[in-house]
Write a protein that binds this DNA or RNA. Structure first.
Lengths: 248, 248
DNA sequence: ATCTTGCAAATTGCATACAAGCGAGAGATC
DNA sequence: GATCTCTCGCTTGTATGCAATTTGCAAGAT
């Protein structure tokens, strides 16, 4: 329950207009975001069971809230919802992982195409700052570097102002993170900083085709590094599902 | 409330084994799909209120189901969910509409890029058949023509086999339909059949760049026809919301 | 000893009950 | 007479209870 505030029989002075504020990260949103973070930060392993009761108790709410959060996550593709069986952290196959990267490449292509030559001075400055942070964290802090790299791409998308594009890219980046936790190597992301810099330069120069190509190359490298080299983690899960399907 | 419970339609006799299949369009799915159809077919006007009770009673279920369906629809962007206020059929602004079309163009570009030169004989045949149907319906049946045109794009996406791409394009096409019901003219879609044919030809020829360009042109035309020419329908809605916002 | 078969525990699906928030109209005050 | 306030009703937010389904385990049969 919320805190019982001090006994205030009369509200002192209320602004006449009720705040239409979009401020309502109701419990559902909180749980949703918490689970999302937990998943993409690999605190919850792919394939892990996510019982409604447990989640509800963990966050001090009822199953209703947990259920809603899980539904949202399933729409985002971060959890699989099996009828009458429950929710599980998504465990995409290698092929599905590749598909996600394909879509992400296309989305990021849209982003840079729209942004090329359109960046304001403050935006350019902000991107420069992010780049510095990336370099700073790159060597020392592994997970921080990953987070910053992801944020760079997201920030870029936000600069387009296209809400739908932002949403799709957010989702896709999350799913890419998940895919990388399964099939990627620990240090498969940190080498892209210089590529980020080049992309920014192309964007500033207004060369949309070069920016688009750089972005595609960049992402292909990330995907390639992750998805082609390391297959032992994959084979286990993949072979199993393959056989399960064949039996049926 | 539900007054008389009709005699429970017992399922006659379920086949022995529950199909592992994804076959479980539980009530939620059904309501979700029904509402989706109702919205994109303009049976529910943009901005219309969607009370949980009413939906539940209409479908013979409780609010729980209606609520879930509405949540899904809000994720898809077909309904707006206002905290403590309820659900409304989405009423996107002109700018938002344009953004949706931008994303759709990019997604369809991905589709044709992937499909160029990769179509099987049966797929080519199927596309040809769809084209015929479109021509048949084009002149006589207006709404059917619109439906078929949308289905053509969707079918194309399905042929990529990329689940995520399919989902995003499905969503985006739905939202485009919604945008067109607000800002489009009744006959703003029917003239694209020949463009469809050209796209297929480019796909068969394996000329991915030409296919991509054709698709972009095609969609730009659709968007342009709808969003640029006809603004009287728009001005009404838009001015109202603008003023409503200003008053607040 | 292994495979089948049925029962029990756990978990989801769904509905309903209760609490809280917003909006509208009646009443009071200036 | 107009405006402000307070209360009432309707709708949403959340919790919980019950039925249905699945899974694991154990006991029996071959």
């Amino acid at each position: 329950m919320m805190s019982d505030d001090a006994p205030v029989p009369r509200k002192p002075a209320r602004p006449r207009k009720a705040r239409i504020a979009e401020k309502m990260p109701s419990r559902t949103e909180k749980v949703h975001e918490a689970l999302r973070q937990a998943i993409i930060e690999q605190r919850l392993a792919p394939g892990a069971r996510l019982p409604e009761d447990t989640i509800g108790e963990s966050f001090g709410t009822s199953r209703t809230i947990a259920r809603e959060a899980l539904l949202r996550l399933s729409v985002e593709g971060l959890v699989d919802l099996l009828p009458n069986r429950g929710a599980f952290v998504a465990n995409p196959s290698l092929d599905e992982g590749r598909d996600v990267f394909v879509v992400r490449r296309g989305l990021e292509r849209m982003v840079v195409k729209q942004l090329a030559g359109q960046l304001s001075a403050s935006q350019i400055e902000e991107l420069g700052r992010m780049l510095e942070q990336e370099e700073l964290a790159g060597a020392s802090n592994e997970s921080e570097a990953i987070r910053l790299a992801g944020e760079f791409h997201l920030r870029l998308a936000e600069m387009t102002g296209n809400r739908l594009l932002i949403r799709y890219l957010t989702e896709t980046v999350s799913r890419c993170s998940l895919v990388l936790t399964i099939y990627g190597r620990p240090h498969s992301v940190d080498c892209g900083i210089d590529e980020h810099r080049q992309i920014i330069e192309a964007l500033i120069a207004g060369d949309e085709n070069r920016a688009a190509d750089l972005m595609e190359t960049h992402l292909s490298k990330v995907a390639g590094r992750a998805l082609l080299e390391c297959r032992k983690t994959e084979s286990l899960q993949d072979v199993l599902t393959a056989f399960a399907r064949r039996i049926d």
